[in-house]
Amino acid sequence: MAIERFPVEASHVMMFARSIGDPNPVFYDADYAAGTEVGAIPAPPTFVQSSAQFDPDYFLRPKVGEPWFGSGKEPTGIKRESSGGGGGGGGGGGLHAEQHYEYHRPLVVGDVLTATVLEGKTWEKQGRRAGKLVFSETITEYRDQNGELVVTARGVGVRTERPATSG
């Protein structure tokens, strides 16, 4: 999996900041941001997660003409017992267990990233409530328009035998 072009845009940062409930004006006002240390609108720390919007094949987005596992007339649009695709980012049968970022420099509006994804380790554990847990790690390297590494992301997904209700 790879993302060939992930432009970091002001309106996307605005919507992302709204969605995480962060009122910091630096995310909404380019003039204000220009006067800060970063000198431009910075991306919130977890913003690169939204690179999914620029992955043409991202499996957790409905696509025209393809079946979708969410509800319509029926509780699911796909007839099968399993709740759908799973995997690293918290898919149908999979949940997101961990996420780690290393920031090599501040990511700002105007950057144009590419992302390459490397498969990491996989391991298993026996859970108390959810049965066998299968963990898998993916490492995503986000590089800028000059090929320089900006963010390294390490995600861990877990697939469970049963719904993992906790808390």
Partner: peptide, 26 residues
């Protein structure tokens, strides 16, 4: 993402070097 605001408000923007963790409950 919501938690990240505690860090950026404390440190200032563009100052994080790393941020990570695990989701321990829903």
């Amino acid at each position: 993402g919501m938690t990240g605001r505690v860090l950026t408000d404390a440190l200032g923007d563009g100052r994080l070097l790393s941020y990570g963790g695990r989701f321990t409950s829903q």
